[in-house]
Amino acid sequence: MAQETKELSIQFKDQGNLWYSQKDYQKAIELYSRAIMINDNNPTFYLNRAKCFKMLKTFDKQYQDSLKAIELDDSYIKAYIVNGEALVELGKNDKNTAKIEKGILRMKKALNMCFKQNQKNFEKEIQTSLKKAEKIKWYKQTEIDSHDKERLMYQIRGKMDNHQDDQDILGRFEKYLNQTDPRYEETKNQAREHRSTHKEIPDFLICRITDDLMEQPVVIQSGFTYEKSAILKHFQINGNIDPITRQSVDPNILIPNHYLKQATEYYLERNPWAFQYIPGELYLQYHM
């Protein structure tokens, strides 16, 4: 490629970046597309356009462009992140969690590449995207399980009502459900008892201000631990006092509680239902 042509494609890319910074994503897409028409072997052009599609919630095109960036440069960490995020968004409308799980794998690959390439500046971004994806996966799986249980409840209660005295039919039906649906036994008990299992999160993982799991737990001068954003907002509104003891504290003394953060992550890995108790912005994003 001639140097002048290459420079022209870079100019279009730079102009696209300017429009992107001004949040005119459609104009940015036009300029990135012009850059691609001149040079279709530059992965950055595709990734930048993919990020515009992400902002416009055109997730299929976000996926396609970020995948093209990966094909052109399979060590492009940012492309794996954006591609994984697109898969997660596309998976929200599916009947299973396959795309969401594939997106999570892409992000985990990006995280591994961070360590191998010593590019730790991406680590926090990937961890945030992974946590969001895991929560979306939990909501999706809960939605699927809920539909399956509703179907089973209908079948079980219908059979119970229609064949109360026919043990042979009930026995054959129960055998069939046991073979075809591993959730049958649990659902059958719920159908009989008309109740759900109640689950509780250990108190020490819950912020006493928000009543939610803590993502950034910090210890303040009084020795109590709170969610960082919540305690800062408390200081701003109520002054520099501990919300429980009411004693005066130095608002600048906020010590990250690494032990509690690790304990929360460990708990979430083994109790994915608890993702619903992470502060609620993501819940709104998922159900929009």
Rank of each mutant, 00 (worst) to 15 (best):
N252T: 03
N178A: 08
T187M: 08
P217M: 12
E227W: 05
P251R: 03
V218D: 09
D181A: 12
F173I: 05
I209T: 04
R151Q: 12
H194I: 09
K188T: 01
P251H: 06
Q236T: 11
R192A: 04
R157P: 00
L152M: 14
K199I: 03
S196V: 10
H163Y: 15
N162T: 01
Q179W: 06
L232C: 06
S222K: 04
T210P: 08
I241M: 03
K188E: 12
D211V: 00
D250M: 06
M160R: 12
K159H: 15
S248N: 08
I201C: 07
F235Q: 04
I209Q: 09
T180C: 14
D250H: 08
R183F: 05
G239N: 06
I156H: 14
G171W: 06
Q236C: 07
M214A: 09
S248L: 11
A191R: 05
H163L: 00
R172D: 07
R195L: 05
E174V: 13
Q190R: 15
Q164G: 15
F235Y: 15
D250A: 10
F224M: 12
M153D: 01
H194F: 13
D168P: 00
E200C: 06
T245I: 03
L170E: 04
S196I: 08
E200S: 13
C207S: 15
Q164D: 12
N257K: 07
T180A: 11
G223K: 10
G223I: 12
I209N: 08
D212T: 13
K199W: 02
Q164N: 10
L152V: 06
I255A: 01
F204Y: 13
R246Y: 13
G158E: 14
R208I: 00
G158M: 04
L213P: 05
Y154D: 11
V218Y: 12
G223A: 04
Q221G: 01
K188H: 11
D168M: 09
I201T: 01
E200R: 09
D161T: 12
P182G: 02
L205I: 04
S196R: 14
Y226K: 04
T245M: 15
S229I: 02
T225G: 09
N257E: 07
N178T: 08
D203A: 14
V219D: 00
G171H: 15
Q190H: 02
R172V: 09
T245L: 14
T187L: 02
L170D: 02
R157S: 08
F173T: 06
L152E: 04
L177I: 08
E227Y: 08
Y184D: 09
A191Y: 01
Y176D: 15
M160A: 14
D212S: 09
S222D: 03
N189R: 13
K228S: 07
I206H: 03
K188V: 02
K149Y: 11
R195C: 10
Q155I: 06
E215R: 14
